[in-house]
Design a binder for these strands. Structure first.
Length: 636
RNA sequence: GCCGAUGUAGCUCAGUGGUAGAGCAACGCACUCGUAAUGCGUAGGUCGUGAGUUCAAAUCUCAUCAUCGGCUCCA
C-alpha cells in the first residue's frame, strides 16, 4: 500500500494510506477535533469529511469556530429544513437555501403561503430528521442527468439554476434520507451533527432577488452545535432589541413617528438638544477645516432638476408641486442649489478650492415598506458639502475630507472601513473621465495608507465614490460618510473659473457627507450608546434630586448656577423617596445625579452619583462643575 | 411597491359574538424620607379608520391607513 503525506493546519506532516477519509484523519488526530469537525479544506478546496485523500495534501479541519465551518453547518441545516418542508408540504418547489451571517434561509414556492404556526411544525419535523441521523451523501451527475432528474421532479427553479451553470461545472447533489438537493457542498457527515435548530422568521422574497419574478416564501433559521450557544445567540438578539433606537427614542422622549407623516420624523425637545449638539460640533469643525456654510431652498423648479440629471434618473423618488402653473420639485439632493451659489459670481483659480457646506433638508419618496425609524426616512438632513476645485487639488482635498471624517468618527468611538464604488450601468460621462476620477480616489486612499474594498458598479450616476462604513459597539456596520468625485455636474451646469492664463476653465467637484444623514446618525448613536450618551450629547446632563423639600431652594440655586455655566440640569423636587428618584434618573440615563439632603444644604456641597459608577462622594459645587466641563471638553 | 404579521388607556399587554380589563405612568391625599420602585384613592379608551354581516361586533367579512419582520430600492 502506498502512503501519502498530509500537511495539517498547524504545519505538522503525517502519513496515511491512500483512500483514508478526512473524517478518519480527524479521528486519528484527536477525538475532540473529530467531534467538532464540520468540514475540511483539502489543498484549499472545501470538501466533505467523507472525501478520501489520494494525493499529497494540505488539510485544514474546519470547526464551528471557523466562519467556513459555520457556513457548512448552517447550510446543512438549510437542507434539513428543506427536507422537513418537503415531508410536510409535498407540493413545495425549492429555490435556494444558503447560509448567511447568523444562520441560513431557504426559499420555497408553496401552493399556499406558510402560516406562522407552521414554523413550529417544521421545527418538530426537523428534530425528527436530526434524530434519524441520515448521512449526507454526495453524488455527481452530468448536466443532462441533472436536468432530467429535476425536470421530472417539477423543480423548475433548480432547472433554471442548472441551465445557468457554466458548461464545465461539476454538478453535484446531496442526499439525506429520501431528500435530494442540488448542491456544491460540502456538508456535515450526518444530520445528527446538527444539534440546536431554531426557525426565526417568515418572509416573502423575490426569486433571484428580482421584483419582476415570483415572490417565494422564505424561512430564516439558525443552528448551533449546542443549545447553550443558541440560547446565547437569542439573548444577544434580545439585547440588541433593547437598544433599538425606535424603542429608546420613545422611552427617552427624543423623537417620534406619527401616522400623519409616514417616514417624516418628529424631533422632541430632548432629541433637538442632541441634534443641536451634533450640528454645533459639526459647524465648529467645518469652520476649522475651511468650509463656509450656506443654505439653499427646499423647492426649486423642474428645469434645474432636468439639467442636473435627477429628473431622468430619479423622478419616481421625488416629490413635486406646482406654483403658478410651473412645475417644481422638492429637492432630493443639495448639489444643484450649491452649484447655483457657485455660479452666482465669477471665480478666480486663486479662490479655489471653495468648500460650501450645507445642512440640507432633502426629501426622497422611499417605498412604504422600506421605512425604518430614523434609519430609513422620507426626509432627512444631509451634512452636505460641495468642494469646487482645480483638477490639481483633487487628491489633497479628498485626503482632507478623509481626515475630517476620521476625526468625527473617533469622537464617538466608532471603528470604520472604507469601500470604493466604481462606474454603475446608469452613468453619465465617458469611461475616460470615470477612470480618471476613480484613479484619483484610489490615489487618495492609498496616500492615507488605508485598506479598502472595491464595489464594482456601485458608484453614483455622476461619479465614483468612497464610502465610510462604521462599526458600532455591538459589531454592526453602517454606511455613513461618503466622498463622491464629480466631473459631470460642472459640465452640465457650465461651471467655470478664470485660470492663470485669463481663460475660463472647468472646476472639479466633490460631494461629501460625514454623518450622512443627521437623523440616521442619531439613530445609530442611540443604538451605539444604548441611549446612555456621553455627557456632551446627553439631553439632560445633571439631575438634581432633593431628599426632602428642605433641599428645594438649594437645588434650584444649583440648577441656575449650572445653567449659567452651560450645563443642562433638571431638579426633581417631587415628594418621592430618594431611591425612587434615583431609579427614574437612572432609567432616563442621565450622566450625573446630585443628591441634595440636609447635609449638602448645610455644607453647600453636592453628593455626586455617576451613571454606571454609582456614588462618587461629596464635592463642592465649583469643583463638580469644573469636572463636568473638563469631561465635555475632552470628549470633543 | 411586493409577501407575511400586528393595531385595545400615555406605555406594556389581557380580552374569540352579549354594553371594555390589569400593571406601570398620570392626577389627588397621607408620609419629609439619604442612593434603583412608600401607601391609599381618583381619573383615563366611540378597541387605527370606513363600510358590511348580525337582534348584538374589540371579536366575523371587505376596504383603507399606519407599524413590525423580510424582499426590492437607497442618486
Amino acid at each position: 500500500m502506498s502512503k501519502i503525506k498530509i500537511t495539517l493546519k498547524d504545519g505538522s506532516v503525517r502519513e496515511y494510506e491512500k483512500g483514508t477519509t478526512v473524517l478518519d484523519i480527524t479521528k486519528d488526530i484527536s477525538q475532540g477535533l473529530a467531534r467538532n469537525a464540520l468540514a475540511a479544506k483539502l489543498n484549499g478546496r472545501k470538501v466533505d469529511l467523507g472525501t478520501p485523500v489520494n494525493e499529497d495534501s494540505a488539510l485544514e479541519i474546519l470547526t464551528f469556530d471557523d466562519e467556513e465551518g459555520k457556513t457548512v453547518y448552517r447550510h446543512s441545516t438549510a437542507h434539513i429544513m428543506a427536507q422537513a418542508v418537503k415531508n410536510l408540504f409535498p407540493e413545495t418547489r425549492f429555490g435556494i437555501g444558503p447560509a448567511i451571517a447568523d444562520g441560513y434561509y431557504y426559499d420555497f414556492d408553496v401552493p399556499e403561503n406558510f402560516k406562522p404556526d407552521d414554523l413550529a411544525r417544521i421545527e418538530a419535523e426537523i428534530d425528527k430528521i436530526l434524530k434519524q441521523d441520515y448521512p449526507f451523501e454526495r453524488f455527481e451527475v452530468s448536466r443532462e442527468e441533472a436536468l432530467q432528474m429535476f425536470e421530472e421532479a417539477g423543480e423548475k427553479y433548480k432547472v433554471e439554476i442548472i441551465r445557468d451553470l457554466p458548461e464545465d461545472a461539476v454538478i453535484s447533489c446531496y442526499r439525506q434520507g429520501d431528500f435530494v438537493d442540488l448542491c456544491a457542498g460540502p456538508h456535515v457527515p450526518t444530520t445528527g451533527k446538527i444539534k440546536a435548530v431554531k426557525l426565526m422568521s417568515l418572509a416573502g422574497a423575490y426569486w433571484r432577488g428580482n421584483e419582476k419574478n415570483k415572490m417565494l416564501q422564505r424561512i430564516y433559521g439558525t443552528a448551533f452545535p449546542k443549545k447553550t450557544l443558541l440560547d446565547e445567540y437569542i439573548y444577544r438578539l434580545e439585547e440588541a432589541k433593547k437598544r433599538d433606537h425606535r424603542k429608546l427614542g420613545a422611552e427617552l422622549d427624543l423623537f417620534s413617528m406619527q401616522d400623519e407623516g409616514p417616514g417624516f420624523p418628529f424631533f422632541h425637545p430632548k432629541g433637538m438638544i442632541l441634534r443641536n449638539e451634533l450640528e454645533n460640533y459639526w459647524r465648529q469643525e467645518h469652520k476649522r477645516w475651511g468650509y463656509q456654510e450656506i443654505r439653499t431652498p427646499v423647492i426649486l423648479n423642474r428645469g434645474l432638476w432636468e439639467q442636473s440629471g435627477h429628473w431622468d434618473n430619479y423622478k419616481e423618488n421625488m416629490y413635486f408641486t406646482q406654483i403658478d402653473d410651473v412645475d417644481f420639485a422638492v429637492k432630493p439632493m443639495n448639489c444643484p442649489g450649491s452649484i447655483l451659489i457657485y455660479k452666482s459670481k465669477l471665480h478666480s483659480y486663486r479662490d479655489l478650492p471653495i468648500r460650501l457646506a450645507e445642512l440640507g433638508l432633502v426629501h426622497r419618496h422611499e417605498l412604504s415598506g422600506a421605512l425604518h425609524g430614523l434609519m430609513r426616512v422620507r426626509c432627512f438632513t444631509q451634512d452636505d458639502a460641495h468642494i469646487f476645485m482645480l483638477p490639481s487639488q483633487i487628491t489633497e482635498e479628498i485626503v482632507g475630507v478623509m481626515e475630517l471624517i476620521d476625526k468625527f468618527y473617533k469622537v464617538f468611538g466608532f471603528e470604520y472601513h472604507v469601500e470604493l464604488s466604481t462606474k454603475p450601468e446608469k452613468a453619465m460621462g465617458s469611461d475616460e473621465i470615470w477612470d480618471m476620477a476613480t484613479d484619483a480616489l484610489k490615489k487618495a486612499i492609498e496616500t492615507k495608507g488605508i485598506d479598502y474594498k472595491i464595489n464594482e458598479g456601485d458608484g453614483a450616476f455622476y461619479g465614483p465614490k468612497i464610502d465610510f462604513h462604521l462599526t458600532d459597539c455591538i459589531g454592526r456596520t453602517w454606511q455613513c460618510g461618503t466622498i463622491q468625485l464629480d466631473f459631470q455636474m460642472p459640465e452640465k451646469f457650465d461651471l467655470t473659473y478664470v485660470g492663470e492664463d485669463g481663460q475660463k476653465h472647468r472646476p472639479v467637484m466633490i460631494h461629501r457627507v460625514v454623518f450622512g444623514s443627521i437623523e440616521r446618525f442619531i439613530g445609530i448613536l442611540i443604538e451605539h450608546f444604548a441611549g446612555a450618551f456621553p455627557v456632551w450629547l446627553a439631553p439632560v446632563q445633571v439631575k438634581i434630586l432633593t431628599v426632602t423639600d428642605r433641599g428645594r431652594n438649594f437645588s434650584r440655586e444649583i440648577r441656575s448656577t449650572l445653567d449659567e455655566q452651560g450645563i443642562r440640569a433638571e431638579v426633581d423636587e417631587r415628594n418621592e423617596k430618594i431611591g425612587y428618584k434615583i431609579r427614574e434618573a437612572q432609567l432616563e440615563k442621565v450622566p450625573y445625579m446630585l443628591v441634595i439632603g440636609d447635609r449638602e444644604v448645610e455644607n453647600k456641597t453636592v453628593a455626586v452619583r455617576k451613571r454606571g459608577e454609582g456614588d462618587k462622594g461629596t464635592l463642592a459645587l465649583p469643583e463638580f462643575i469644573k469636572n463636568v466641563k473638563e469631561e465635555i471638553r475632552l470628549k470633543k
